[in-house]
């Protein structure tokens, strides 16, 4: 009797240990339901196509966000924060967010900045590290410094939402 109970429990344990099931194609994990809205991107998009062009359109922005994700998940200062997070989803939503803000023709379907960064324990130094990595990535794409700053000006007001102590 006891043995069969233990068996039953251990059988039930298996799917729980494997964690939630990812999307069969992308591997992206489900998140708690939320209202999709471009306003979740946390900044209004640029007007006109000057910024989108300077950032190389969707292709250029994709390279930037992909390289940014590689950078932040391997930088010793902040990589720990990304351990166990859904990097597939982050890669997609970060691209959408940058593409939307740069007015390169995307909608942002991710969560708002406050909910996405709640309880991560990020500090000012983490945000500065992320900004430096982004600057390096934009340098690699030969984006003019003044335009890098114009883009960073869209992200800078998000500080209180992404840093939580």
């Amino acid at each position: 009797m006891l043995l069969s109970l233990a068996l039953a429990l251990s059988v039930q344990d298996v799917p729980a240990n494997a964690g939630p099931v990812g999307d069969p194609v992308t591997g992206e994990l489900p998140v708690d339901p939320y209202q999709q809205d471009n306003a979740n991107a946390g900044a209004r998009p640029f007007k006109g196509d000057k910024m989108a062009k300077a950032f190389g359109g969707k292709d250029g922005i994709k390279r930037i966000t992909d390289n940014l994700v590689v950078g932040i998940t391997s930088d010793p200062r902040i990589e720990e924060i990304f351990k166990g997070q859904d990097i597939v989803r982050l890669r997609r939503t970060l691209f959408e967010q940058f593409c939307y803000i740069l007015n390169a023709g995307c909608n942002y379907t991710g969560r708002d900045m406050r909910s996405a960064h709640k309880n991560l324990g990020t500090q000012m130094a983490d945000l500065n590290a992320l900004v430096e990595i982004l600057q390096n990535v934009m340098d690699q794409e030969n984006i003019a410094f003044t335009l890098q700053n114009r883009f960073l000006a869209k992200l800078a007001p998000m500080k209180d939402d992404v840093v939580d102590r």
């Binding site: 500090q123 130094a125 500065n128 590290a129 900004v131 430096e132 102590r165």
Partner: peptide
């Protein structure tokens, strides 16, 4: 109350 963290300014 929290651990001190060295550096980190831009």
């Amino acid at each position: 109350a929290e651990e001190l963290r060295q550096g980190g300014k831009l």
